[in-house]
Computed example of a mutant assay.
Amino acid sequence: MTFKFKIQPTPGSLFWTNVTKMLKENNESLRSVALHMRDGVNDKKTLALYDKLYRYKREAINPPNVLANGVLSYLKKFDEYLMFSDLYAEE
């Protein structure tokens, strides 16, 4: 007897999959998000923020609210009607 079931993606995986897709559609990167969150200042703190975002993305970890809100505010530049729940929506 074999069981077939679909493994549900984690919230972090859903979030980063959708963020990656939206960034790719707009030819942007996580570095752009980090710069936006640091008000355009390109320094060591921006690089540390980028590293943190990249680590969360790579490990598919659900980001803390502060980071998730920063990513959302950046993506709203491209879609003013984007909602927080859209970042966790399944295809």
Rank of each mutant, 00 (worst) to 15 (best):
V71D: 02
A89G: 09
Y54K: 08
F15P: 00
M1R: 10
Y81K: 11
E80Q: 08
S29Q: 03
P63V: 09
L82T: 10
N26M: 01
T17R: 09
L47V: 13
Y88S: 15
M22Q: 05
F15I: 10
A48N: 09
S32T: 10
V71M: 02
P9S: 02
Y81W: 06
A68Q: 05
P11V: 08
D43V: 13
M1E: 11
P63L: 01
K21W: 09
S32P: 14
K24N: 14
D39C: 10
T17H: 02
S29K: 14
R55V: 13
A60Q: 11
A68S: 11
N18R: 15
M83Y: 08
K77W: 00
K21G: 13
S85A: 14
V41I: 09
L82F: 11
V71L: 01
N62A: 03
E59N: 09
V19Y: 03
L23G: 02
A48S: 14
D43P: 13
K24P: 08
A34I: 01
A48D: 15
F5V: 07
Y88P: 05
I7R: 00
D79M: 08
Y56R: 05
F5C: 03
M22Y: 04
N42F: 13
K77R: 10
L14N: 05
T2W: 15
Q8W: 04
S32D: 14
S32A: 15
M37N: 08
D43I: 07
V66M: 01
P11L: 00
G40R: 06
K4T: 12
S13H: 04
T46Q: 07
L49K: 00
E25K: 05
D39P: 03
D51C: 03
Y54T: 14
